[in-house]
Write a protein that binds this DNA or RNA. Structure first.
Length: 849
RNA sequence: GGGCGUAUGGCUCAGCUGGUUAGAGCGCUUCCCUUACAAGGAAGAUGUCGGGGGUUCGAGUCCCUCUACGCCCACCA
């Protein structure tokens, strides 16, 4: 026993985090059998410079569950990873070093970036080679990941750091490419030339799951198309007049009476005089605009549908850089007076202004543009509206084009238990609303390369349907550096030779494999897949159900024919005090490290674990203050209980805890242990905390105060032994019950009387006592005595001459049983009893008080 | 338009399968240096459980309906 003079929370995080690390207490036992493993598919956070409160919130909730499972006897598989490949890292590198990737630049040995952190606003990014850019990515993620790891260790998350991975590291690249190649082999991945949503700034294709709608100003322009039969004009409304040169048809609803006579006829476009047909399709909405719309290749996703289903020609005019192509479509090119030349090379925004001027001059725009607000699709990380361009891309089948697969994937959702249950609807909704396969290729740099080459024909054109695939044993590969079997390096880009796929996999195409990556699926060294898969728990936030949760389910379905986890635990968001989602752009972000330093880790954890799964929660420093008070109290009450010294050797609970009051207290505690255990088993850590906390304060404020005197041996040795033993039992259970929530304070107090960690201790079991209610009446009397003293404005120590009690027979019996404790706790000299109801006391303070 | 969620004292939230006068903490007020704890303790005030209707002996709790707020999806002419 080693009790401090004055318990303190200061410095306990550093001390115990270091000790846990030294002792390796969270290390996964690779000899564990599957049935005894609790495997967590930890979300690998996107490394971005700093963890935010959302991370603190949800990862702490997961950690509480992990700690419970560990104490409950499961071997916990709790990896951590960094999601460091992909656009967020590229963009951060650009902003941090003041560079941009330009594959046409030569590699510079020992390149030194112009800045390291915060280039001035007027700095123009310096173009650097692909390899220099990738080197800078590696440099920055190394810095960022260390910062993340430091904060995580201070948060006390009980991850096994020996399982650490990053989604760009060699093993992840190998696993990702292996899984992709297997998808290709079984036909669940394929490449196709097709119109694709395209971000013109990042110059990459974007998947459906990464879209978001933003409300943007626009304007309806009314344009006159001229009937080729000379019977006048057809008026359409458009928000994108700049795409007029890309117009391939007009469309109206097949049953719209206004246009029945027009179907099958043709009109000439304004400005360019291109003849286009008037067609019918049920997606045309009679109540929108003038009821008849122009179809362009491509203004929006509906255009793509029309273009495909009505088999219309292709007249693309928007390039991958978001500017109007230099070459006009042939039919436009043959049109008179070079109107197209004026917009060639312009951005779509500039082109719109020019086209509107041209239309106004030609009289083919009717009236003024009518401003509106409407929703436009953006890449969620992008700054300009998405365009649609045609390109060859890789896809993984996700049910978007296959009802049977869709049904199967919804079925995978039912294999998991969702916490809270209603989150499953979001999954079902998303799967059922998919309208295309998952586009996984990205025209970016810092990612897992698509492990494919293509043979070049005699003209030097790639034969995309003859893709050359590497052997799994050679992974990971970089097709732009490695040479496929049967070819020589000097055949690269030569007719009759080969070319590597330039693209990388979408970051989700790798992070959807976290169960496989973390478990080292099919890796030569340390493969734990069969020990941990399907994993027990996937913790994550609810806003990425459509991306990460769904994508992981798709991969597991194709590769393993089952759901990747048994439980999906969805955390809520952190809201600022105004109940808005906290985000950097709103400037209301608080940094976790400041809070840890101000309130202590356990206090921050208390706040995080007070919130239920799936519930958006207000950020609350008040809760952290409460948490700090709680942790502090745990230390102090531990010191008090332990100050009585060790219990006698060989003493048993039944032999020693003889006092009814003490057994009642343990009975209450039994109920709490039972409830907390059931709650934790159902992932409801918040309920476990709430019950434990309520008991804890009752224990400190009422029970301890009541029996304190007896424990000090002011009455009988038997009574003291009973109280001390009961106190010790309760403390033992409380420290264990609180260990998942306040791992540092619990460990600090536990180590005063143990040589091993509380986090290696077993979860508490019940004492076999029952709460017979014998404490209720005595504590009511104590409360009344306290109130009398407060009202008399005297100290609680002030002596009481008499307490005249009116109570029922049962209550009186309980009070008499605890009368000695009451006398001590309340400094009460004399009790008198009258039978009656309700319970009441007449309290006479000692003379002179 | 489709789906989901939330609505309980000034604030943050409990209240599980319906059962005695609706709970906790914060904040507020008053008092107390009491030998585990003043980064503490004792006590007090504060609620038409969003509105309306229904089921029931009994509803914050179940059903219907309305309202407000939030989220996901659809909606780009």
């Amino acid at each position: 026993m080693n009790l401090p003079e004055r318990p303190t929370l200061d410095g306990i995080e550093e001390r115990w985090a270091a000790q846990w690390d030294t002792d390796g207490i969270y290390r996964f036992d690779r000899s564990a059998v599957r049935a005894n493993v609790f495997a967590i598919d930890t979300p690998p956070p996107t490394v971005s410079g700093s963890l935010h409160m959302g991370h603190i919130f949800s990862y702490t909730q997961t950690d509480a569950i992990a700690r419970y499972q560990r104490m409950a006897g499961r071997e916990v598989f709790y990896p951590m990873g960094w999601d460091d490949n992909g656009l967020p890292t590229e963009r951060r590198v650009q902003n941090y070093f003041g560079v941009r990737c330009d594959p046409s630049q030569p590699f510079i040995e020992g390149f030194e970036p112009p800045y390291r952190g915060d280039p001035p606003k007027d700095h123009h990014a310096i173009p650097v080679s692909r390899q220099n850019f990738l080197d800078l990515c590696e440099q920055l993620i190394a810095i960022d990941e260390q910062v993340f790891e430091d904060v995580m260790r201070r948060m006390g998350w009980s991850v096994d750091w020996s399982l650490l991975y990053s989604t760009i590291d060699e093993r992840s690249r190998r696993v990702s490419q292996r899984a992709f190649l297997r998808d290709v082999a079984r036909g669940t991945a394929y490449s196709q030339e097709a119109p694709t949503l395209w971000d013109v700034d990042f110059q990459t294709a974007v998947a459906q799951a990464e879209l978001e709608d933003r409300d943007r100003p626009a304007a309806y322009h009314t344009l006159a198309f001229h009937r080729t039969d000379g019977a006048g004009d057809v008026l359409i409304e458009t928000t994108r007049p700049e795409l007029l040169a890309a117009c391939v048809a007009l469309v109206a609803h097949p049953e719209d009476p206004r246009f029945q006579t027009l179907f099958g006829r043709t009109v000439r476009t304004p400005l360019y005089g291109v003849e286009v047909p008037i067609v019918a399709h049920e997606l045309a909405q009679p109540d929108k605009g003038s009821g008849i719309a122009m179809i362009c290749t491509f203004g929006d996703t509906t255009d793509v549908t029309w273009w495909r289903e009505l088999q219309l020609p292709m007249r693309a005019i928007v390039g991958r850089n978001g500017r109007i192509l230099a070459e006009a479509p042939e039919c436009v090119n043959s049109a008179p007076d070079g109107k197209y030349a004026a917009i060639a090379g312009q951005t779509v925004k500039q082109a719109q202004r020019i086209v509107v001027e041209q239309l106004a001059a030609s009289g083919e725009m009717i009236g003024e543009p009518k401003p509106i607000q409407h929703l436009v699709k953006f890449y969620e990380k992008g700054d300009r509206p998405l365009e649609i361009v045609t390109s060859r891309q890789w896809y993984i089948r996700n049910g978007g084009r296959d009802a049977a697969l869709r049904t199967a994937l919804v079925g995978r959702g039912t294999e998991m238990t969702w916490h809270p249950g209603h989150m499953r609807h979001r999954f079902d909704n998303w799967v059922e609303g998919l309208n295309g396969d998952w586009l996984v290729s990205r025209q970016r740099f810092f990612g897992v390369p698509i492990p494919v080459w293509y043979p070049l024909d005699a003209n030097g054109d790639p034969e995309f349907d003859q893709a050359i695939l590497p052997d799994e044993a050679d992974l990971p590969i970089d097709p732009s550096a490695d040479v496929p079997a049967g070819y020589r390096a000097d055949q690269r880009s030569q007719p009759g030779g080969f070319v590597g796929d330039q693209d990388v996999l979408d970051t989700w195409a790798t992070s959807s494999l976290t169960p496989q990556i973390a478990s080292r699926w099919l890796e030569a060294e340390g493969d734990m897949f069969d020990q941990v898969f399907p994993m027990d728990m996937r913790p994550q936030a609810h806003d990425i159900i459509r991306t990460w949760l769904f994508a992981t389910t798709v991969r597991a379905h194709h590769e393993h024919g089952q759901a990747p986890w048994h439980h999906a635990a969805l955390s809520g968001w952190i809201l600022d005090p105004d109940r808005k989602k906290m985000s950097k752009s709103k400037g209301n972000v608080v940094t976790p490290i400041d809070l840890i330093e101000q309130y202590g880790t356990d206090a921050v954890r208390y706040w995080a674990t007070s919130a239920r799964l799936g519930t958006d929660t207000a950020f609350s420093e008040d809760q952290m203050k409460v948490g700090r008070k709680f942790a502090n109290k745990l230390l102090n009450v531990s010191k008090f209980v332990l100050s009585f010294g060790d219990v006698a050797d060989g003493a048993t609970l039944d032999g020693t805890v003889t006092h009814a009051v003490d057994r009642s207290m343990l009975g209450k505690l039994d109920a709490v242990i039972t409830e907390a255990t059931a709650a934790f088993a159902a992932f409801d850590y918040a309920r476990a905390l709430e019950r434990t906390e309520a008991f804890f304060w009752w224990f400190c404020d009422d029970y301890v105060e009541l029996v304190k005197g007896r424990a000090y041996e002011m009455q009988t040795p038997e009574g003291a032994a009973s109280a001390r033993f009961a106190l010790r039992c309760a403390l033992d259970a409380l420290q264990r019950l609180l260990a998942p929530f306040m791992p540092f304070a619990a460990e600090e107090a536990w180590r005063w009387w143990h040589t091993t960690s509380v986090h290696m201790a077993s979860w508490p079991t019940t004492f076999g006592c029952t709460d017979d209610g014998l404490l209720e009446a005595p504590l009511e009397v104590l409360s009344l005595v306290r109130r009398a003293k407060t009202e008399a404005k005297v100290t609680q120590k002030a002596p009481v001459a008499t307490v005249a009690i009116t109570a029922s027979a049962d209550q009186a019996a309980a009070i008499v049983g605890a009368q000695a404790d009451l006398a001590s706790a309340g400094s009460i000299a004399e009790f008198t009893h009258v039978t009656g109801s309700p319970l009441a006391c007449e309290i006479v303070l000692a003379a002179g008080e």
